[in-house]
Design a protein around this nucleic acid. Structure first.
Lengths: 202, 202
DNA sequence: GTACTGTTTTACTAAAATGGTCGAAAATTC
DNA sequence: GAATTTTCGACCATTTTAGTAAAACAGTAC
């Protein structure tokens, strides 16, 4: 029978590996990082890693998930705020674009788009895209409920919005604007985007 | 017969490769950079690289040499200035410590000190150390000539000074101080170092 | 001292990756 | 059109890497 202390230290070790692996992956990227690199940073043997994780990909997913958690916390803060739905959607889009920085490892993998990692990219994309669509739908539904939005097909509009944000990723990859510039860029583009969504009030 | 234009474009291509390779080596380090990485950055096939360079190590040496040239230009500017020899030596030491940044690839190789690269490190170390000793000796000789220095054994003092500067590299590796802080740190340490060298004037 | 558990390490394997070469094709020059 | 230069695909030998199994180690309980 596993005692609770050993479970706790097991999880402590897993968290330690994830934390250190995050730094190593950020430095070298998924492909160029070896499990031995991570082991050396931990001052352990490579095989020890496999005691805690199934594979290199398993470690990487845990790293991305930890980063995603930080991003989710930010999204939840926005969703539960007292902002009207337009402001919520604006804040959400900003936070989502900043995810490029918070979820650094995930976006680096996507940016490099190395053909050898397509399988992993697709797995992760599917997972996080589903989450994003869910959030966008909640916001569009909330807007429909309170009369701020008029959307004929929430499903299609959600997909369109997500696709638009993904289109914005590329310039962000290339040229990291300062935070205030990012705000201005997004404000301008969101005002244009909303023009077709918001009911005009006299 | 090679015409001069083809020699020029050949050299242009070599310079282009060195320039692009410099960025790739800086990003990934010598070991993790593959020749294919460099080729992809150049949008050429890997084999094309071998038309211009003998080996991966050959490319890296050319990269380091290009960085060293920038450093040499700075050193020559100091040596040919009208400063007195004490000020020259101070300026030299500062410039040399800044070489950690200018010769980024060389120092990154040394910092990582991966056992698999020891042969390459030793080759490069021998080359650039010899240059440095030569410069330090010139300065000490100049100081002896104009009475500003009193050095019993120029050879030993040169080696001691070079060793001291190498000792300073490590803290610089770890924590990149801002330029003005670096100036202050070096001024303080140089004043202490010179205390035993400069003839006291009444 | 023995038994057990959790963790780490050593030795190993199969597959993938890499440095580098060769010959042929393409592009360029004269 | 021929000569030269440049490029690339296919290939090879070697090295590296992800991952595994078994052994060893450290700590704990009795």
């Amino acid at each position: 029978m596993i005692n609770k202390d050993s479970t706790r230290t097991h999880n402590d070790m897993r968290n330690n590996i994830v934390s250190i692996a995050s730094n190593v992956f950020e430095k070298f990227g998924f492909k160029k990082t070896t499990v031995d690199d991570i082991a050396q940073a931990l001052r352990k043997g490579k095989s020890s890693i496999y005691y805690y994780f199934k594979s290199k990909e398993d470690i990487f997913k845990a790293v991305v998930e930890k980063e995603a958690d930080a991003h989710r916390a930010e999204i939840n803060r926005i969703m539960e705020s007292n902002l009207n739905t337009i402001e919520k959607l604006k804040s959400y889009v900003k936070a989502r674009m900043l995810a490029v920085k918070i979820m650094a490892n995930y976006y680096t993998l996507i940016r490099n788009n190395d053909v050898s990692n397509l399988d992993l990219i697709e797995k992760l994309r599917a997972k996080y895209d589903t989450e994003e669509l869910s959030i966008i739908k909640r916001l569009l539904n909330e807007g429909m409920d309170n009369g701020l939005f008029k959307v004929k097909d929430i499903e299609l509009s959600s997909i369109a919005l997500l696709t638009a944000m993904k289109g914005l990723e590329f310039p962000l990859f290339i040229d990291s604007p300062k935070a205030d510039n990012l705000d201005k860029i997004l404000d301008d583009m969101l005002d244009i985007l909303f023009y077709g969504l918001v009911i005009r009030k006299a």
